[in-house]
Simulated scan of single mutants.
Amino acid sequence: MKPSNTIKELLDILNSNRIGGVPVVDDKGQLVGMVSDGDVLRYLAPKPLGIAGLVYIIEEQ
């Protein structure tokens, strides 16, 4: 995955491969970071939520 990929592309990769995270590489193939499904949830809901809040976020996508 590249830093320029979208959140939608990330979710498609995670879902289609049934994985929870992927490495992020630059144009030279060097590792620059990791991104996970948890990162996406924290991005979408930066404040603490209960289970009901997470279910709402998941259903809205």
Rank of each mutant, 00 (worst) to 15 (best):
I7K: 06
G50A: 11
K47H: 09
P46I: 05
D37S: 11
P48A: 00
G53W: 07
P46W: 02
I13A: 08
D27R: 07
S4W: 03
Y43W: 14
L10P: 03
N15A: 10
T6K: 08
L41Q: 06
L41R: 03
P23E: 00
P46F: 04
V35E: 02
V35H: 03
Q30P: 06
S36A: 10
Q30L: 15
L11A: 04
K47P: 03
V32K: 07
E60A: 15
N17F: 04
D37P: 01
Q61A: 14
R42F: 14
L10I: 04
S4Q: 08
G53L: 04
N15L: 11
E60F: 11
K2L: 14
M1A: 10
G20I: 05
M34S: 06
Q30G: 14
S36K: 02
I7C: 07
K28P: 09
G33N: 01
G21Q: 12
N15R: 15
I51E: 14
A52P: 07
P48R: 04
A45E: 07
D27H: 08
D39S: 00
G38P: 02
N15Q: 12
V25P: 02
Y56F: 13
A52Q: 14
K47T: 15
Q61V: 15
K2P: 10
K28H: 14
G53Y: 04
V32N: 05
K8W: 14
L49D: 05
P3K: 02
V32F: 11
L49A: 10
V25H: 05
R18H: 13
L10F: 01
G50P: 08
E59A: 13
I13S: 08
Q30T: 13
M34P: 07
M1N: 10
D37W: 07
K47Y: 13
V40T: 01
V25Q: 09
L54A: 10
E60I: 09
L10D: 00
V35T: 07
V55L: 12
G20N: 05
V24F: 00
K2Y: 15
V24C: 01
G50E: 12
S16Q: 15
